[in-house]
C-alpha cells in the first residue's frame, strides 16, 4: 500500500496540476479567436524604425508568421510557452516531498519502522509520481483536438499525443531532479526553490549553450517543424532522470533519521 500512501500525499498537487494545465490548453484554443483579429495589426508594428533598431523586429515577425495558422498558434502558445513553463513547475512540485519531508512532520519514523526497504519507499513514490506526470503530460494536449472544432479549427490527435510524449520526457527529468534534491534537504522549500532556480538558469543559458536546449525538446519543436520526434532529447532526458533517481536512492540509503 505504499503506492496508495504516495497517492494520498500528492493527490491535491496532482489534481491542481491536471486542472490548471488542462484549462490553460483549452484556454489557448479560445485565445486563437481573439488573436485571429489582432495579427494583421501586429504586422504593421514591425515596420517601424524602433522595432527594426531593437532587433526584436525579426523575432516578432517570426512569431507572427508561426502563429498565422491555428496549428502554429497552438504550438507557440500552448506547447512552447504555457505547457512547457507550467509543466516544468508542476513536475518539480510533484517531485518534492518524500521520506525526508516526512521527518519534519514526525511520521518518518513510523514509515521507517515498516518492513520495507528505503528503495521500495522511493520506488513507490517515483512510480506514483511518474504515472501522475504521464497524466498531466498527455491529458492537456488531448483537450486541444477535442475543443478545436468548436471554433471551426482542426488539430490532429496524433499531434497532441506526440507533444504529450515530448512534455513527459523532460518533465520526468525535472521530477527526478526534485526527487533527488528532496533526499538532500529535509524541508519542503529548498528542493523546490533550488530546482526552480536550475530550471530558470537553463532557460536563460540555453541561448548561449545550445546543449541545454531541453525546452525545445519539451515543446516538441522538431516535431512541429519537421514531424520528427526528438529521440536524442528523449534519450538524454531518460538517462539524466535515471541517474538522478539512482543518486536519490543512494543518498536515501545512507541517511540517518
Amino acid at each position: 500500500m505504499l503506492w496508495h500512501k504516495a497517492w494520498l500525499e500528492t493527490r491535491w498537487r496532482f489534481i491542481s496540476a491536471l486542472l490548471i494545465l488542462t484549462v490553460m490548453a483549452g484556454g489557448n484554443v479560445y485565445d486563437y479567436l481573439a488573436t485571429e483579429r489582432l495579427l494583421p495589426r501586429l504586422n504593421a508594428t514591425t515596420d517601424t524604425p524602433v522595432a527594426e533598431a531593437s532587433g526584436l523586429a525579426d523575432a516578432i515577425r517570426e512569431a507572427i508568421e508561426v502563429q498565422k495558422d491555428f496549428r502554429g498558434f497552438i504550438w507557440f502558445q500552448a506547447f512552447r510557452q504555457n505547457l512547457t513553463q507550467m509543466g516544468v513547475f508542476f513536475a518539480i512540485l510533484l517531485g518534492c516531498g518524500g521520506l525526508l519531508s516526512e521527518s519534519s512532520k514526525g511520521s518518518a519514523l513510523f514509515t521507517l519502522s515498516l518492513p520495507v526497504t528505503r528503495k521500495q519507499l522511493l520506488g513507490a513514490r517515483t512510480g506514483t509520481g511518474l504515472a501522475q506526470l504521464f497524466a498531466i503530460s498527455m491529458v492537456p494536449p488531448l483537450v486541444i483536438p477535442i475543443l478545436a472544432p468548436s471554433i471551426g479549427q482542426q488539430f490532429g490527435i496524433v499531434d497532441a499525443l506526440a507533444h504529450g510524449i515530448c512534455i513527459f520526457f523532460v518533465a520526468a527529468m525535472f521530477f527526478s531532479l526534485a526527487s533527488f534534491l528532496s533526499t538532500l534537504f529535509g524541508d519542503i522549500w529548498r528542493p523546490l526553490l533550488i530546482a526552480i532556480a536550475i530550471a530558470c538558469f537553463i532557460a536563460v543559458a540555453q541561448f548561449t549553450v545550445p546543449q541545454l536546449g531541453i525546452y525545445r525538446v519539451m515543446s516538441g519543436e522538431s516535431y512541429f517543424r519537421t514531424g520528427a520526434l526528438p529521440w536524442t532529447g528523449f534519450l538524454t532526458s531518460a538517462v539524466i532522470a535515471t541517474a538522478l533517481l539512482y543518486s536519490a536512492a543512494e543518498t536515501l540509503e545512507r541517511r540517518d533519521f
Binding site: 500512501k5 494520498l8 512532520k105 514526525g106 511520521s107 519514523l109 513510523f110 519502522s113
Partner: peptide
C-alpha cells in the same frame, strides 16, 4: 516513537 506521529 516518542512523538507518536502518524499520517495526518
Amino acid at each position: 516513537s516518542d512523538e507518536k506521529d502518524l499520517y495526518d
